[in-house]
Design a protein around this nucleic acid. Structure first.
Length: 113
DNA sequence: TACTTGACCGTAT
DNA sequence: CATACGGCCAAGT
């Protein structure tokens, strides 16, 4: 396990429950701008047993990154909805659940809890 | 070594 | 909404 992986996993673990973040945002937050693909690759190699809110990571469009209907896709949708995140047609409205530019921030000026 | 793949992204058409 | 293009780059062939 190298530093890069550690930082990326940390960035993912830092996403608050009920919120989601894009691959690019995670990469940037880990100090690796432009390396969203690396994030995606790592998510496919998460060590067994490691606790990680992988399901809170979506494409920049808000779409779930896995093939619609696949096992992972359904699992991700289920977990997100369990946290109160709205998932419609495999997509989440980043305008409301994303880490930035969300409604709470706009109205109350309090991005995080 | 060379080429392909892929849980990606932003811009442009 | 869909396609195209250039970036990115570790792994697998």
């Amino acid at each position: 396990m190298n530093d890069v992986a550690t930082r990326i996993y940390a960035a993912i673990a830092a996403i608050p429950a009920g919120r989601v973040a894009s691959y690019g945002a995670i990469a940037a937050r880990a100090g690796l701008p432009g390396r969203a693909r690396l994030v995606g690759r790592l998510l496919g190699e998460v060590p067994d047993g490691m606790e990680l809110p992988w399901y809170r990571v979506l494409r920049s469009s808000g779409h779930i990154a896995m093939p619609p209907g696949s096992r992972g896709f359904r699992e991700q949708s289920r977990r997100l909805r369990a946290e109160g995140v709205e998932v419609k047609n495999g997509r989440v409205p980043l305008s409301r659940f994303g880490l930035d530019g969300n409604l709470d921030h706009a109205l109350w000026g309090m991005p995080d809890a």
